[in-house]
Design a protein around this nucleic acid. Structure first.
Lengths: 115, 115
DNA sequence: CCGTATCCCAAGTGATACTG
DNA sequence: CAGTATCACTTGGGATACGG
């Protein structure tokens, strides 16, 4: 994952404490709480996408938020960003191995949320 | 679950749009993003707990945030709140059926976050 | 097409004090 | 014991405009 190792669920308690805010679980949860992350991952789980394609798929997202979301995902190793230096430029995003795992995880959330 | 039905992952896109903010997935994700929710659920997954016990388990939580968290979980049907009208009062929280399901789901998140 | 740069507001959270 | 009531702060996110 993208951060430090973490105890199991029986000793989960201190994870929210000030001195534990950088733990892996917290990073995961914070990410899930971000407004556009899961939808971006879902869209990319269907295959590589260009910036504009993702923008269209995520109805209502602003360019600012989409860029922020994708950059964070890239920083954390969940997506790859490939730039084709044409004019105008062409940028393609795709899931990394970790990103695919994450997508599987969130698919479980999606299903659970339906019933 | 605690809200409206939802399309599957292939048609997930509009879920973040203004007119879809009340969908089940969004509610689930927002809840996961809340700071103390998952830890409270984890603590309760080990058995019923009194207010003070949860407070001690969630190192760093304020009374305000703990109450807010538990009230939201109760409102959404994930935990039960049982008041024993003694003096001083004794209040016990426990997971509902749905809460147990939710705990299982988050356990997956915990494991994934560890590596 | 693919972004950056500002400005601004509302929500989530924390600190602290008080109470039946 | 199990909360409420305020206040103050920080951050995420939206609106808008501009740029290579």
């Amino acid at each position: 994952m993208f951060a430090a190792p973490q105890p199991d669920i029986e000793t989960l308690e201190p994870c929210g404490a000030p001195h534990h805010e950088d733990c892996g679980l917290r990073l995961t949860l914070d990410r899930l709480g971000e407004k556009w992350t899961v939808m971006a991952i879902a869209e990319l789980s269907a295959g590589p996408r260009r910036y504009r394609e993702i923008e269209r798929a995520l109805a209502g997202v602003t360019q600012r938020m989409l860029t922020l979301t994708l950059r964070r995902l890239e920083r954390d190793g969940l997506v790859h960003r490939h730039v084709e230096p044409t004019n105008p430029p062409s940028v393609t995003y795709s899931l990394s191995r970790t990103g695919v795992d994450f997508a599987r995880l969130t698919a479980g959330l999606v299903n659970w949320s339906r019933q």
